[in-house]
């Protein structure tokens, strides 16, 4: 087990850094969403249009979409912390499944910006990029670890 975690230390660093970048980005968006009262349009605007659109909140309960972003990256970070602290490789299936959800959501939100709101928001695009990278690495991780981890983690699961 310890051997496997050493070999896949890169995955902890990569997923960990991406999750942290995502949390910072999504936190900025959430704060901007809540302070939109004082926001104004400048000559380089665009973001406020996306952040004040009806898609900036979930239809139920008015939860900001950006806050869901924070939750998404928080779970990714948890998967990494779980593996670091328990000294085992990152769980492959949860990471792949969760990052797929994130990727599909990002795809949807980016399409809304492109086709419905017709405006771009820098931090939203950055978050889409981050979740896409997490998804790509999750696929890479899935295939590179297939043979190695399977036996070891089968026992544990």
């Amino acid at each position: 087990m310890a051997q496997a975690s050493k070999r896949f230390g890169w995955s902890q660093i990569v997923f960990g850094l991406l999750a942290i970048a995502g949390i910072i980005d999504a936190t900025i968006l959430t704060i901007e969403h809540y302070t939109r009262d004082g926001l104004s349009c400048g000559f380089t605007g665009g973001c406020e249009r996306v952040l004040t659109s009806q898609y900036s909140e979930l239809p139920i309960l008015g939860i900001p979409t950006a806050l869901l972003g924070v939750v998404f990256y928080a779970v990714v970070l948890f998967l990494v912390m779980f593996s670091v602290i328990n000294r085992e490789p990152i769980r492959r299936l949860p990471m792949l499944a969760w990052s797929t959800i994130g990727f599909v959501s990002s795809l949807g939100l980016t399409s809304i910006q492109a086709f419905i709101i017709k405006a771009w928001c820098q931090y939203c695009l950055l978050s889409a990029l981050t979740s896409t990278l997490i998804f790509i690495f999750a696929i890479v991780y899935w295939f590179t670890t297939r043979s190695t981890i399977k036996k070891e983690s089968d026992n544990e699961d």
């Binding site: 942290i20 949390i23 924070v70 928080a74 970070l77 948890f78 912390m81 328990n86």
Partner: peptide
Amino acid sequence: IPILFTAAIIALLV
């Protein structure tokens, strides 16, 4: 423990 660590990191970042 991982949950606590994750929460602490997030709190710090926020």
